[in-house]
Amino acid sequence: MNIKQIAVFLENKKGRLAEVTRALASAGVNIRALSLAETTDFGILRLIVNDPDQALASLKTSGFVAQVTDVIAIEVEDKPGGLARILEVCNKNDINIEYMYAFVEKRVSNAIVIFKIDDHEQAHRVLKENGIPIVTSDVLKNL
């Protein structure tokens, strides 16, 4: 149910982002979604890609510190209040969101948002109870 995200450590130096994307391109990896969190000194690049294993291997070969983490992809209605509704459900059920970012592609008429959550089991249960659809990695691959 969870999907695999690649996180990469980057120093705040000129050209590093380009080097990450070049490494992935050379390995034939396609980036589907990304987010960059940064301080003044360093950043964490988070990526959803079509082939996480290949991506991880190519980044390590290029000397980057990278790791795979589990995240949840949730379908969000593409209309005002779509995201608000989901966040309210999370809030009501004490689901703590570490970070989130939006997917580039759309699925039919819905947007896809990536959530990093502490307790995945609880999140899955609550989302199901509230009829909020999550997207599996198989579905993502075929977008």
Binding site: Q5, A7, F9, T39, I44, R46, V65, Q67, Y99, K116
Partner: peptide, 15 residues
């Protein structure tokens, strides 16, 4: 130097 043992995808952990 950062390494795989101390790296995390969450900013708060690195901070």
């Amino acid at each position: 130097e950062m390494n795989e043992t101390i790296f995390s995808d969450e900013m708060k952990n690195l901070a």
